Simulated assay, not measured.
Amino acid sequence: MTETETFETIRLTSDVVLLAAGRVLLIERGWDPYEGCWALPGGHVDAGETSLAAASRELVEETGISVPVSNLWQVGTFDTPGRDPRGRYVTVAYAATIPKAVPPMAGDDATAARWWPLTALPPLAFDHADILSAVIGSANPNQ
């Protein structure tokens, strides 16, 4: 008997946890899945792009806030099957801390962007609560 290999399409994304003064920057999603829900800024890694470059780009596109790539540190890879209802998605999460919360401007597929107190978060889309927990429980090697 011969085993048959099966392959599934896996999409790569990047997410960003941006912290400032006890707050985290979130975007309100403009379309499904989770339209109208709050999430971390992030999105697909483009062809020829690193996950780090994608994280930086998506942060600017969705919030108007730019953070130097050198200030982003990798939190980890999140790849639990079923974390995204569209199919198999793997995300590389990054984090950064800035001294104060600067006003965001929603763009791209975000209908809103705002700073939320870490003590009063809305329900988060996908597994973004797990990603945020990983950041809060870790030490930033860049500080």
Rank of each mutant, 00 (worst) to 15 (best):
M1I: 11
T2L: 14
T2D: 13
T2C: 09
E5C: 11
T6N: 12
T6Q: 14
F7V: 14
E8A: 14
I10F: 12
I10R: 15
L12W: 15
T13C: 09
T13M: 10
S14W: 07
D15L: 07
D15I: 05
D15W: 07
V16N: 00
L19N: 03
A20M: 01
A21Q: 13
R23S: 10
L26R: 02
L26N: 01
L26G: 04
E28L: 07
R29D: 08
R29Q: 13
G30D: 12
G30A: 14
W31R: 15
D32I: 12
D32A: 15
D32S: 15
P33M: 14
Y34T: 08
E35M: 12
E35Y: 05
C37M: 15
W38N: 05
A39G: 08
L40V: 06
P41F: 02
G42N: 05
G42K: 06
G43K: 06
G43F: 08
V45C: 10
D46G: 10
G48P: 02
G48C: 06
G48T: 10
S51W: 06
S51L: 05
L52W: 01
L52T: 01
A53K: 05
A54M: 06
S56L: 00
E58C: 05
L59G: 00
E62F: 02
T63A: 00
T63M: 01
G64A: 05
S66E: 07
V67Q: 00
P68S: 05
P68Y: 03
V69P: 00
S70H: 13
S70N: 12
S70C: 11
L72S: 00
L72V: 02
W73K: 10
Q74R: 15
D79M: 10
D79H: 12
G82Q: 04
R83F: 08
R83C: 10
R83G: 06
D84A: 07
R86M: 15
R86G: 14
G87F: 09
Y89R: 14
Y89M: 13
V90I: 14
T91R: 12
T91E: 09
V92S: 03
V92D: 07
A93N: 04
Y94F: 06
Y94I: 00
A95L: 04
I98F: 01
I98T: 04
P99V: 02
P99N: 02
A101I: 04
A101P: 12
P103D: 01
M105H: 12
M105L: 11
A106Q: 03
G107Y: 02
G107C: 03
G107N: 01
G107H: 01
D109A: 13
A112S: 07
A112F: 05
R114D: 00
W115M: 06
W116C: 08
P117E: 10
L118S: 06
L118G: 06
L118D: 03
L118K: 07
A120V: 08
L124T: 10
L124V: 09
L124D: 09
F126A: 04
D127E: 12
A129R: 13
A129C: 08
A134M: 09
A134E: 09
V135K: 03
V135L: 05
I136E: 05
G137W: 08
G137E: 06
N140S: 11
P141C: 11
P141G: 11
N142T: 13
N142P: 04
N142E: 14
Q143Y: 12
